[in-house]
Write a protein that binds this DNA or RNA. Structure first.
Lengths: 234, 234
DNA sequence: TCTGGGTACGTACTCACGGTATGTGAGCAC
DNA sequence: GTGCTCACATACCGTGAGTACGTACCCAGA
């Protein structure tokens, strides 16, 4: 319990909620105002979108004022970026977790795909990362962020799968394939989340991508070189 | 209410040499104010983005006032939608044109892919459709628009390619494959347009996608059924 | 214990921008 | 020429991002 000053004025009370004390948020969590702002912002950005979520409503939800917000963030966009990074980081961690322990590249790929499809269906990921991200951050910054988190996972998986055989791909070609798969999975994931039957849709996506990967295997077995590959002793 | 028998037309009087300054835009192009607004809006939305392009600057560029704008459009978003639809329609036409005359599905696919990669590199398409579209229109409306134009082209190509062999795919599975390829091409296209060497990057993408399609062919030759395919007499 | 500076806010304001309400001249219809 | 509508123009309003500045609190050092 922090030392109680004689009078705390301007306490934003919740009207009609006698159970909630009038103590200011600052007194309760003075150290975590920033987190409270990000929490509320994440919710409002998810529900309303960037433009429609006003700073007034965000600071009201966090029970602070705009002064506090501008103390911690340089502006609305910076607040959004904080939210964006957290959502991306969470998504990346979820995928990493799914990959954990899988040793076989194909198993890894399947687990990663499933985790990715799950993430893409989260409302906050869809809204904040996919829908608003490019517009608010600008395409360059959006791409940078993506590169460091979710895309990195896809790249890792693709690398594992494509290098599993007798190929040793050029880095640029590998990046190209990763881009292609990343886009394929994103788009497919979005279609899954807006499908009438998401479970069936997810299965179709998994089947389709597995089929594509199977094509890779067969080509490898037939000795067809991957484009941009340098032959490797087997 | 009786139907209007005549169409009111404003004939530009233009008594002599129309000076560039002075005369109101209404007198010169009163019938095409709407198009002028869309033209200017397209340019400003492309250069500045949706939020940063103010209506004041748009109406100033079109040499009208906000009253005129709100006479033709219900608001800023409606104006954006008009721009969006035109850009999408142009893109779709460009792809259709590239497909024209190609009979062989593989040839068709390659031409379509190249046209798509070209479209994705246009600044207005990148900014208005890819970057701002989902955010401004909302995901649902964005998806709808896409479905009717660019995606429809991809679907057509994928249908031609996948049905070329001995398969007859279920419609849903076909849609899934089309989604996957659409996403792959979008993502790849974006990476192409932001690459240091777009030409080389485009070649890599074409190579990679051709390789994937080759996998389909080989699997078909090996008699591996496409998932969701009903066998067909050959 | 006093004091000075820094931190973490709160308050009150400005300004730009989207949207609206209303005014107005030009051109038919009769 | 009178009245109506269309195609705008102008003036205004509300909202919301961002800013200037004040202030309570905390800690360090004298």
């Amino acid at each position: 319990m922090p030392p109680k000053p004689s009078v705390s004025k301007l306490v934003p009370k919740v009207p009609g909620m006698p159970g909630v004390t009038g103590a200011s948020r600052r007194q309760q969590y003075s150290a975590s105002t920033k987190r409270a702002l990000v929490d509320v912002a994440e919710e409002l950005f998810t529900d309303l979108g960037y433009a429609a979520a006003s700073l007034d409503s965000i600071v009201a939800g966090a029970r602070v004022t705009k002064g506090a917000l501008y103390h911690h963030f340089s502006g609305k966009q910076a607040l959004f970026e904080a939210v964006f990074e957290r959502v991306e980081a969470d998504a990346s961690r979820a995928i990493q977790k799914a990959l954990k322990g899988k040793k076989d590249p194909w198993e890894k790929a399947l687990a990663g795909l499933q985790a990715f499809l799950a993430v893409v269906q989260e409302p906050r990921y869809r809204r904040i990362v996919i829908q608003e991200g490019p517009s608010v951050l600008g395409y360059e910054r959006f791409r940078e962020q993506e590169e460091r988190s979710t895309f990195a996972n896809v790249l890792e998986i693709v690398r594992a799968v494509l290098n599993a055989g007798t190929w040793e791909l050029e880095e640029e070609m590998l990046q190209t394939f990763a881009r292609i798969f990343f886009g394929a999975m994103s788009s497919a994931g979005e279609s899954v989340s807006s499908a009438d039957d998401p479970i069936a849709a997810a299965e179709r996506v998994e089947t389709a991508i597995a089929f594509i990967l199977q094509g890779f295997q067969v080509l490898a077995a037939d000795g067809v070189p991957l484009p941009g590959a340098t032959p490797e002793a087997d």
